[in-house]
Amino acid sequence: MAPERKTLADRFVAWIAENVNLRVLINLFGTFTGFLYGELDERLELKEAVQKQLRKPLSGRVTHWGGCFGGITFLLFAIQVVTGVLLAIYYRPSVESAHDSVLFIMNDVRYGWLIRSIHRYAAELMVLTVMIHMVKVFLSGAYKPPRELTWVSGVLLLFLTLAFGFTGYLLPWDQRAYWATTVGTEMAHSVPLVGKYLSYALKGGDVIGQRTLSRFYAMHVIVLPWVTTFFLLSHFLMIRRLGAYEPL
């Protein structure tokens, strides 16, 4: 076994462990909030189950610095959910008012520019980190049995991330959005046999218009988030049960 390297995170955790008595903190938390879930806990023994899950030791791979890209991708997804909900409050998905509502978010909504910019940058970072994660998993051979399905769910999550990017790009309804989507749907059009129907289904018609915007919006804020959540959960569950890989 290679000598363990102390990362910044390791030292931070060690500092917390030395200076903060976490067990006392957790017990105090339980004491003060027990009346909220006590009745439930008596019947379902939640506390025991939760503690067992929390204490479970992790595979060294997940905690190694190079293994952090999957976790960072998840954090970025969480940021996207929060900022995305905030944007959806002001965004109006119609051809007439989408552009105006984004302008309103950028110029008039307090910190709207910040939320939208974070959403934009986190989206691009998310594509980047999910790609790095995938390359690292591939090069280390972590997809070998019994972890094939973890890999499959991961590839699905990559494609879902790209679908998020593709559908989200149209929503501001500016020139760049419109013409990038034109290029995208033209690519779909050149798929042999089904290309025509595929591009028609994407656009909701022969041209990019209100129907395109509506269906991209529905995909971006309803369908994709829930599908992604489902595959994230299965990805994490499989990692919990099977572990990340253990190199020989």
Binding site: E4, K56, I79, L125
Partner: peptide
């Protein structure tokens, strides 16, 4: 290589919180 001294909570959660703050710094 499972490190018995590295449970999900608090160690891993704290690392994730640290990563979250670094990430937010980058995004800002």
């Amino acid at each position: 290589m499972a490190r018995k001294d590295h449970p999900f909570f608090p160690h891993h959660v704290l690392e994730q919180v640290l990563q979250l703050f670094l990430l937010l710094a980058v995004l800002f």
